[in-house]
Amino acid sequence: MIVGTVREIKDHEYRVGLTPESVHELSAHGHDVLVEAGAGLGIGATDEQYRHAGAEVLDDAASVFARADMIVKVKEPQPAERAMLRPGQILYTYLHLAPDPEQTAALVASGAVCIAYETVTDAGGGLPLLKPMSQVAGRMSIQAGATALEKEHGGRGVLLGGVPGVLPAKVVVIGGGVVGFNAAQMAAGLGADVTILDRSPEVLERLGTYFEARAKTRFSNKANLEQSVAEADLVIGAVLIPGAAAPKLVSRAMLATMQRGAVLVDVAIDQGGCFETSHPTTHSAPTFVVDGVVHYCVANMPGAVARTSTYALNNVTLPHALAVADLGWRDAMRRDPHLLAGLNVWDGKVTCAPVARQHGYAVTDPAEALA
């Protein structure tokens, strides 16, 4: 199979779909690998390193799209990239289609086979291709929130950990999954006063056992959520419904109860965001203010730490890429139902039920694609 990767063109996105080491693995399996010139510079990987690993380096993305059977990316294809997809071509990347009707329509029209990292599952019901970026985003959310809390950036002027004689910041984490756990780890490590809200008693028990006195847990009902948000200096939105749009848990009305200069970091923004007042921002302009509350809603947070993120991502995406390249996507999915769960769009049809419901498409059973 001919496998290609291109330079990411989303604002301040420095990750790349394939590292030189991943190219070496694909080449060792007998596949041809095409890499757009400069694709790896954001992680410090030169074109010469890709050539040494066995890749052919091409001048532009169009050349890669024209020849590759499978395109491996990081972020969802931008409009110019969607226009280069062709029927039957495999696209393997993060898609986050639920909040994005335009992208969904373009992928349906392309006829391509679109596999979304974020809906591939594992035997335990987890999302293994989303997990490393959730770990990165969770940890980064505290860094970003701490910066936004500084007076210069519009915040209250509060130091997360406080100092002797001065109380630390109150950090509220909504959601106790991978993002929330990693956010709480970072916040507690900095000495903040941390509260984690979740609706699962099992999750709350696990978090309570892990954090002991370093963080508090609280059941996420409306009253507890409203009180916690009103008292918070920093709120981390860390909720996820796989494949579907995130629920709007913090309303515009709740902002009126918050302290001026408090900060909301919406890590769920890729799936539409879990704050009513959220809209996607970029690393170029990461924050905006609504009713005196600072919002940080960057949709590709891990792109800021591109080298760490790319290598963490390739560790989990490469095995599936090798399976698809070695066997073809149909046989790879017949052998691995967890990979089949990643199929979102095929032959002009939507095969991910939450996406189909969100945008009004008839849902096609992904097993039909394997027939």
Rank of each mutant, 00 (worst) to 15 (best):
A146V: 14
Y92N: 11
A184R: 07
Q135M: 14
G145Y: 09
G155S: 01
E212P: 01
A106C: 12
K222M: 05
D122F: 09
A123G: 15
L95N: 05
L107G: 02
A123P: 05
I196S: 02
V203W: 03
S134P: 09
R156N: 03
V179A: 13
G177W: 09
T147W: 11
A123D: 15
T217Y: 02
L95Q: 09
P132H: 13
L95T: 05
A169I: 00
K151T: 13
L107P: 04
G175A: 08
V203R: 06
E118P: 12
A105C: 05
A183S: 14
L225W: 10
T217G: 03
P201E: 12
S141P: 01
C114Q: 03
A98N: 06
I115V: 15
E205Y: 07
D193I: 02
G126A: 13
T119C: 09
F211L: 08
G124C: 03
A187I: 09
Q89F: 09
I174K: 07
V163D: 09
G126P: 10
I174N: 00
G208P: 06
D122M: 10
E202C: 04
L107D: 04
A144R: 02
G157W: 14
G189N: 08
F219G: 05
I115M: 12
G177P: 08
V158F: 09
E152L: 15
P101T: 07
K222T: 14
V136C: 06
T104R: 02
M140T: 00
Y210S: 07
P128S: 11
A223D: 14
Y92D: 01
V120F: 08
T121L: 12
G125S: 04
S110V: 10
S141K: 02
A106M: 07
L127Q: 08
Y92E: 01
Y94W: 08
E152Q: 10
S134E: 10
T104I: 05
T119G: 13
